[in-house]
Design a protein around this nucleic acid. Structure first.
Length: 295
DNA sequence: ATGGCTGTTATCCG
DNA sequence: CCGGATAACAGCCA
């Protein structure tokens, strides 16, 4: 479930774990999604560099590397649908879908692992190939009037717009659905027909949805030991504590087809938009009067 | 078991 | 140019 909140939580963990650590040796196991793809080139590029810190832009992780001279670098990592980044014992056999493994220097044997079963993610060192992304929804400098103008520029359904990376960064299918519910907006509503007032409500809903998810994510106990424990960072199946609800149990609409709306009891609907599942409550997110009936 | 679904997004068409 | 469909891929579930 790597959307902005999950990436943000991962960034914080990785920053704490990696800052100051150096790369002893790099292995490329699946070059298709890696730059440089060649194992020797890759190792030559990053071996000996030290992690300065970890940040993100949208759903892209940015791992900053310092060299002794001016050979600094940045890794742009994207988790795709199923990517996971964690620390592990380098003496263990690499995970089945390991993409890159960085052995870290120091007496405590540790390796940074990027694995990605579906292979939709990527791991690029020193790339300038970062796509143009829309504004960061949680940044204080988020220019709401300008964003409102962007919404006015298209009749595309609002949910499709929220999934457009050039319109706003970091939102994926889950939080697009959740934010639209919180704002009480029908996902099919044409973007251009959203009033300023409603757009403000949407921004507020986006921010609170993402904030809450980050908050929840930071409560999960970090453990790199097993895939199952790692999954707690990303996957909504497991509760943070046995007596706490799982994230799935906290969603308003996502993956809740046919279940009663937590707000009004109406049955949640599932529809398809651009080949992605859309969930909404027909009562809390009513259709806007799209056609005039004033005959 | 076969088909349909899944957290993403670059690219290809009409 | 815009926007929808597709492709990349593995795994899980009914």
């Amino acid at each position: 479930m790597p959307e902005l909140p999950e990436v943000e939580v991962l960034v914080r963990h990785l920053h704490a774990a990696l800052a100051g650590q150096s790369i002893a040796r790099a292995f490329v196991l699946r070059g298709r999604r890696v730059e440089p793809a060649d194992a020797a080139d890759h190792d030559a590029l990053v071996a000996g560099l030290t992690f300065r810190g970890v940040g993100r832009r949208g759903k892209d992780l940015l791992l900053q590397l310092d060299g002794s001279r001016s050979d600094n670098a940045v890794i742009v990592a994207h988790l795709g649908m199923t990517g996971r980044i964690y620390l592990s014992d380098p003496r263990q056999a690499p995970a089945k879908h390991a993409v890159v493994v960085y052995e870290l220097s120091g007496h405590r044997a540790q390796a940074l692992i990027f694995e990605d079963p579906r292979g939709f993610g990527h791991w690029r060192v020193g790339t300038q190939h970062i796509p143009e992304l829309g504004p960061e929804p949680l940044e204080p400098g988020f220019d709401i009037p300008a964003w409102l103008q962007l919404l006015q520029s298209s009749r595309q359904p609002i949910k499709t717009r929220l999934l457009d990376l050039s319109i706003i960064a970091g939102i994926g299918n889950i939080y697009a659905n959740e934010a639209l519910f919180e704002a009480g907006i029908h996902p099919l509503l044409p973007s251009s027909s959203i009033s300023p007032q409603t757009a403000h409500r949407l921004v507020t809903a986006i921010r609170s949805t993402l904030h809450k998810a980050i908050q929840r994510g930071t409560q999960y106990q970090l453990s790199w030991k097993t895939p199952e424990e790692n999954n707690r960072l990303f996957y909504f199946g497991a509760p943070a504590q046995p007596d706490q609800p799982s994230a799935l149990e906290l969603f308003w609409v996502y993956d809740r087809k046919g279940q009663p709306c937590r707000q009004c009891g109406a049955s949640i609907l599932r529809t398809l938009q651009s080949q992605r599942s859309t969930f909404h409550c027909p009562s809390c997110q009513p259709d806007e009067p799209s056609t005039s009936r004033s005959w």
